[in-house]
């Protein structure tokens, strides 16, 4: 058996195994969706993997986030909230240009949680960093501390909120990783939109789950964290940076 033939057979076997297993994996994933009375578990670590070489010249993720969570501008860019934004990069020496979506990185050691005086800024057991707006006093120290500029302070009264996404004046907010969707077993709105209309650059999943695509890819492909020097162990990882 020559090597080429052997390799071909190997790939074929892998493909057959993949086709047989894929629906099963999907079933397992669905079966693992948490029931409503079950608390978020520390066994999970929700994360995002964003391949910026595929990040298209669009802002579908931003629009989807705004629609899902009900944040929108009031024509005052400096005080308007942005939970997710497209950031353009250009290398100072080579001129190489890239773009990527930037949002809360859902750190394992979030500076915003460290500095919050009341504990309103907190990290849920499954790794999602949130603001308990019932306890937020609006001091904005977390905005000072966040290395990613991911947080917004709500500068005006808000009406017409989404039922799943309460928002109000005088507190700080940021990307929730669409926690209300994740708790229903769905993916965040940005990921859904990117994979439907955009460059299919985003993958959402449990970083701890060996069966999850995100786990497999960060194991076998290069990826990086923004400001890895701060050792925050972010839940959002980038490829192609």
């Amino acid at each position: 058996m020559n090597p080429d033939r052997r390799q071909f057979l190997g790939w074929g076997a892998a493909a057959v195994a993949g086709a047989a297993l894929a629906p099963g994996l999907r079933l397992i994933e669905l079966a693992q969706a948490r029931s409503p009375e079950e608390a978020a578990s520390a066994l999970k670590r929700w994360g995002l993997l964003i391949d910026i070489t595929k990040c298209a010249d669009c802002d579908d993720c931003v629009t989807a986030c705004s629609d899902e969570n009900g944040w929108k501008g009031h024509g005052r860019p400096e005080t308007d909230p942005q939970w997710i934004r497209k950031v353009s990069l250009r290398d100072k020496r080579t001129g190489y240009a890239q773009a990527l979506p930037m949002m809360c990185q859902h750190c394992e050691h979030p500076p915003c949680v460290d500095v919050c005086p009341t504990g309103a800024s907190f990290r849920r057991d499954d790794g999602i960093v949130l603001v308990d707006k019932h306890a937020c006093i609006g001091c904005r120290y977390c905005v000072m501390a966040c290395p990613y500029g991911a947080r917004s302070f709500i500068h005006e009264e808000i009406t017409g909120q989404k039922a799943d996404v309460p928002r109000g004046k005088g507190v700080v907010e940021s990307c929730t990783l669409c926690v209300h969707r994740v708790d229903r077993g769905e993916t965040p709105a940005c990921v859904e939109a990117c994979n439907r209309d955009g460059g299919k650059a985003m993958v959402f999943g449990d970083l701890n789950d060996p069966a999850a695509e995100i786990h497999r890819r960060i194991r076998s492909e290069p990826s990086s964290q923004v400001r890895a020097d701060l050792a925050l162990n972010t839940g959002v990882r980038y490829q192609g940076l």
Partner: peptide, 21 residues
């Protein structure tokens, strides 16, 4: 229910504000 939902992600509908409304 508020604290359970926000901090632990427990979203049983019975006492949820959304259900009341």
């Amino acid at each position: 229910q508020r604290d359970l939902t926000v901090h632990e992600g427990i979203r049983t509908p019975r006492f949820s504000l959304k259900n009341c409304v």
